[in-house]
């Protein structure tokens, strides 16, 4: 043990320099070439800066809503509900969400309510919704904004993000980008 303690300490110091100083410094340097210099992807709109990948709370009936969040959409923290699939309290909460959604969207039938709109995401910050979850909100928004539902429908279609390289993963829609486009459409 004694013969090993000094080499152990010294090699630790050397590796600290390599792995905890040089390595992150190199990654930081590469990040300076990336969009927004490695400070996270942002979208600017009306002189406001939004994080593209962080979900926002949308409760107004004129906006597309995000998925439920277990952390109230505050990215100072993150996490899911961690409710088990058979937890009665959880099932009651989902049922309440479905009822609320149906009340706010009277044009929608129960069988059309997509599961992602009534279940909390893993991070509480999921920036996306499924295509079905956007479509099911079109009627409400069209009514609230007194817009043509068809043009709203094509706005949704234009914002569908295809799977990676057309091959891998699910389709999705970024709620923030869609809502900004929605506001821009009304402004015109």
């Amino acid at each position: 043990m004694k013969t090993h303690i000094y080499p152990a300490i010294k090699i630790t110091v050397v590796l600290l320099v390599l792995l905890a100083v040089i390595y992150p410094a190199v990654v930081w340097a590469i990040a300076q070439l990336a969009p927004n210099h490695g400070k996270g992807a942002v979208i600017s709109y009306h002189n406001q800066k939004y994080y593209k990948n962080i979900a926002q709370s949308f409760t107004d009936e004129t906006y597309f809503w995000s998925r439920p969040s277990a952390v109230a959409y505050n990215a100072a923290g993150s996490g899911g509900s961690n409710k088990g699939p058979s937890n009665p309290e959880y099932l009651a909460a989902v049922k309440a969400r479905i009822d609320t959604f149906l009340k706010d969207n009277p044009e929608v039938s129960k069988a059309q309510v997509p599961v992602d709109l009534v279940t909390a995401s893993g991070s509480g910050l999921d920036p996306d919704i499924s295509v079905a979850a956007a479509k099911v909100q079109v009627a409400r928004i069209a009514k609230a904004r007194a817009m043509d539902a068809n043009s709203l429908q094509s706005l949704v279609d234009a914002h569908v993000q295809k799977p990676l390289w057309g091959m891998f993963g699910p389709e999705k829609i970024n709620v923030l980008e869609l809502n900004i486009a929605l506001d821009q459409m009304t402004e015109k």
């Binding site: 899911g80 961690n82 409710k83 069988a111 599961v115 995401s121 079905a132 999705k172």
Partner: peptide, 19 residues
């Protein structure tokens, strides 16, 4: 959740991310 009559075709999304 399927028993509640909603569209669960995306799968078990509680605790999962859409992307």
């Amino acid at each position: 959740l399927a028993h509640m009559g909603i569209d669960t075709s995306l799968g078990a999304m509680e605790g999962k991310e859409v992307r």
